[in-house]
């Protein structure tokens, strides 16, 4: 494994358009993800989610394809190991009988492709990914 990343699939008995609004409407997003949110639901629009009055997620929308796909960057304000711009969340909505399959992939962004975020993080940091991949001894079975 060369990256930190997870995949999830969940079946939701609702239309893609209903589910989609929970990612683009700040008031609805706060019902399931965080306490307060500012969203600019357009390509290159900003995302700011205050999770608990202390931990803040910053990101940017990369793709907004109504009712089918949403891609945005994700990172924790002030975090070295998971800074803003260091990971990407890819949501795909696929209608199926009686509802929608939501596919979520959250993976780290290669360092070379990372955007320099206003939160200001040090590009020279040895990122977690580097530790995981070094000589193959870490992140694999002992």
């Amino acid at each position: 494994m060369s990256d930190v990343g997870i995949k999830r699939e969940i079946f939701i008995e609702a239309k893609p358009s209903t589910i989609f609004s929970y990612f683009t409407d700040a008031a609805k997003l706060c019902l399931w993800l965080g306490q307060q949110a500012k969203l600019e639901p357009a390509e290159s629009g900003r995302i700011e989610i205050d999770m608990n009055g202390h931990d803040i997620v910053l990101g940017t929308f990369k793709t907004i394809d109504p009712y089918e796909r949403i891609v945005f960057t994700w990172g924790w304000k002030g975090s070295d190991v998971h800074p803003p711009g260091s990971s990407i969340v890819d949501i795909a909505l696929k209608p199926d009988a009686g509802g929608t399959w939501l596919h979520l992939q959250h993976s780290s962004v290669p360092e070379s492709e990372r955007e320099c975020h206003e939160d200001g993080w040090n590009r020279n940091l040895p990122q977690l990914r580097d530790v995981l991949t070094n000589d193959g001894t870490i992140g694999q079975g002992a």
């Binding site: 930190v4 990343g5 997870i6 999830r8 969940i10 939701i12 008995e13 609702a14 209903t18 589910i19 929970y22 609805k28 019902l31 399931w32 993800l33 190991v81 998971h82 939501l102 979520l104 959250h106 977690l128 530790v131 995981l132 870490i138 992140g139």
Partner: peptide, 25 residues
Amino acid sequence: GFEDLQQYLGQFWDDHLTVLKQLAE
């Protein structure tokens, strides 16, 4: 220790997607 981050991420989304499912349904 390094796998903790991966686990944390998985747990984070499991918890939140469960709530999203309930709300949307």
